[in-house]
Nucleic acid binder design. Structure first.
Lengths: 238, 238
DNA sequence: CGACACTTTGACTAACGTCAAGGGACGTGG
DNA sequence: CCACGTCCCTTGACGTTAGTCAAAGTGTCG
C-alpha cells in the first residue's frame, strides 16, 4: 500500500487547525499569537518527533497523516497509549513516570503548541474546543484501561476494530471498509498483545465470516453487529 | 481498622475546594456561582454516587475520604480506572463506550460540579488549576495503560505501591508507612489482576524483605529503592 | 523479478486465573 | 475483655490463555 503520499488537502496546517477548532470569534491578536507559537513538524513514516519544549506540556495537532504515542517500559517493552489521526489533538504527558515518544505511523504534518499558551489564549473566546478534546483523550485513555485490564484477546481486537471504524472507517451500504495505517506489531502494542496473537484473532474473525482482509492493511467489516457483540461494548444495565 | 470516621478537618467542603484551587483573584461573582452549582455528596463506605447530571460532564472534588472510578465490562468484570484521594479532582467520562460508576472507598465527602460551568468560570481567573488537574488525570490514565498492557503482576504491584506512597504515604526517617483504604479485590481490579495474584505478589515482596504488612491495610516499605526497581519506572535512555 | 519485511501458522511454555480449603483479622455481643 | 462469627486474605493444586520460539507463507517495493 502506497502511503497515499501527502497531497496537501490542507495546504496550511495552521488554517486546518483553526478550522477544526471552530472558535470564530477569537480575536485577531490571539490568532496571530497562536500562529507564532505553533511549531510545524513534518515526520516521515516511523520517525519520532523531536520535542524540544519538553519542560512544558505540549499539545500536538495532527493536520495530515497518523501518529502514535508510545510509552516505554524498560528497554524493549512498549505500549501504545494513543493513536492519533487527522484532525485530532493530542495532549502529551509531562507529569508521568513513564517516558513517552511520539512517532509517525505514516508520513505526517503536525503542529506543536505549548499547551499553556494554547489554553489561555483560546479560552478567551468561546468554550474551549481544546479542553473538550482533552476530556475526550481522557475518556479514551480510561476506556483503554478497561480494555487492557479486563478484556480477552478476542474482545480487545474486536474493540480495536470498532474504534477504528468510528475514527477512520469508510461506511458503505452494507459493508465498512478500513485501511489501517498501522502494522500488526503496532496493533499488538496498543492492545497489550503480541503480533502472533493479533494475527490469530484476525484469522478467527475471518473464519467466522465477520471480516475479510485484503493484503496487509485493508479490512472490510462484513458483520458489524457481531463485531460489536464481541467487543463487549459493556451493556451492563446498572 | 476503624475507618477513622470523618472528623471534618475541612468543615466546609467548598472552602476546602477553593483552598486547593488557589485562584485568589477569582471575582466574588464567580465564587458564589461555583458555590451554587457545586452539589455536595456524602457517601458511606462502598456506596455509589448518584450522578443526576450525567448528560453533562461532571467534575468531582474529593474533600474527605477516598473513592474509586470503576469501568464495567459486561455483567461482572470490572476495572478500576482511577483512585481518588482527599484534595484531588476527578473528571468523569461522558463520551466513553464503557459505563463507569463512582464508588466510595471510605466514607467520603464530595463536591460535584458540571464541568463546563467549572471551566468557563475558573479560566476567567489565572491559568486554570482544573485544566492542570485534567492533564494530570490524563497522564495517570496513560501510565495506567502502560502498566496494564506491558507489566508483569510483580511490576504492577510494585508500581501500585510506589504510586500510593506518592499520594498517601507517610514518609518516616527510614521507612514509609501506608494505610491502604482499599481491599485486595480493589487493588486487583485496578491492576487487572485477581485477588489471589495480588496476595501472592504481596507475599513475594514480604519474603524479599521489601515490605512488611500489619493487618489487612497497613504496609510499611522497608526498601523503597528495591521497590522502585521492581516497578520498572521505565528508565529507558531514549 | 527478487529481496526483504511483515504476517500467518504450529508446537510448546509460562504466567496468571480458577477452584478449593484453611487461616487470620476485625467487630460484635456476651 | 474475651468468644465467636463473618469476611477477607492467604496458600495450594490445577487449568487456560496468551507468550515464546521457530518456520513457512505472502505482500510490497526496489
Amino acid at each position: 500500500m502506497k502511503p497515499k503520499s501527502l497531497n496537501h488537502p490542507h495546504a496550511d496546517p495552521f488554517q486546518h487547525f483553526m478550522d477544526v477548532l471552530r472558535s470564530p470569534d477569537l480575536p485577531e491578536s490571539s490568532i496571530s499569537f497562536l500562529q507564532s507559537c505553533g511549531r510545524p513538524l513534518h515526520l516521515a513514516r516511523g520517525e519520532a518527533a523531536e520535542l524540544r519544549e519538553q519542560e512544558q506540556r505540549t499539545a500536538i495537532f495532527v493536520s495530515e497523516g497518523a501518529a502514535k504515542l508510545v510509552g516505554h517500559v524498560g528497554a524493549d517493552r512498549e505500549q501504545i497509549v494513543a493513536f492519533c489521526f487527522e484532525g485530532e489533538l493530542l495532549i502529551l504527558s509531562v507529569t508521568s513516570h513513564t517516558p513517552y515518544t511520539l512517532q509517525a505511523l505514516t508520513e505526517c504534518r503536525l503542529l506543536a503548541f505549548p499547551a499553556g499558551d494554547l489554553i489561555t489564549k483560546v479560552t478567551e473566546a468561546t468554550s474551549s474546543a481544546i479542553v473538550e478534546r482533552t476530556f475526550l483523550a481522557l475518556d479514551q485513555a480510561r476506556d483503554a484501561s478497561v480494555l487492557l485490564g479486563r478484556k480477552t484477546a478476542q474482545e480487545k481486537l474486536a474493540s480495536f476494530l470498532v474504534s477504528m471504524v468510528d475514527r477512520i472507517g469508510v461506511v458503505g451500504p452494507k459493508i465498512i471498509a478500513l485501511d489501517l495505517p498501522m502494522s500488526r506489531r503496532e496493533i499488538g502494542d496498543c492492545l497489550g498483545l503480541t503480533i502472533e496473537t493479533v494475527s490469530r484473532q484476525l484469522t478467527a474473525l475471518r473464519n467466522h465470516g465477520i471480516i475479510k482482509t485484503y493484503g496487509r492493511s485493508k479490512i472490510t467489516i462484513l458483520d458489524m453487529a457481531r463485531l460489536s457483540e464481541r467487543a463487549v461494548q459493556a451493556s451492563c444495565t446498572t
